[in-house]
């Protein structure tokens, strides 16, 4: 998770505009940059920049067809990102589960201690 490649992957997906471009590619298969530019609220230049970043991260690939360049998602790489993300989330769920158990046990213990002190005071007094 700490390699240069993974950093590129996460920063590529981290940008909401790039996720939008990626989303369009995921839903529409192989399309051109001009087609993408027609679907998003930002410029054709911005689309081109996003495509470069996504390609560098290995999330999409390009192919020339006649005079057009067509882009499509690399499903394996996306799947890998999605699994890594789910793995990290699951890790935090395990940690939160452990915190919950520890805090609830400590709280029960505190309450019992308090009750014993009180009953102790009662007996003494």
């Amino acid at each position: 998770m700490s390699s240069q490649t993974d950093d590129e992957l996460w920063s590529a997906i981290g940008d909401p505009s790039r996720r939008q471009v990626l989303d369009l590619l995921v839903s529409n298969g192989e399309v051109s940059a001009s087609w993408l530019a027609g679907q998003v609220p930002f410029s054709r230049q911005a689309v081109s920049k996003h495509l470069v970043v996504l390609e560098r991260a290995g999330l999409i690939s390009r192919r020339k067809q006649g005079r057009e360049v067509l882009y499509q998602v690399q499903a394996d790489r996306l799947d890998q990102a999605s699994r890594a993300m789910a793995g990290l989330a699951a890790q935090w769920d395990l940690r939160l589960g452990a915190i919950k158990r520890l805090a609830e046990a400590a709280h029960t213990e505190n309450k019992r201690g308090y009750a014993e002190n009180k009953s102790g005071e009662g007996h003494d007094g």
């Binding site: 993300m85 989330a89 935090w92």
Partner: peptide, 9 residues
Amino acid sequence: MPGLMIDRD
């Protein structure tokens, strides 16, 4: 991992 964000509760 800039860009990555996990949010759990």
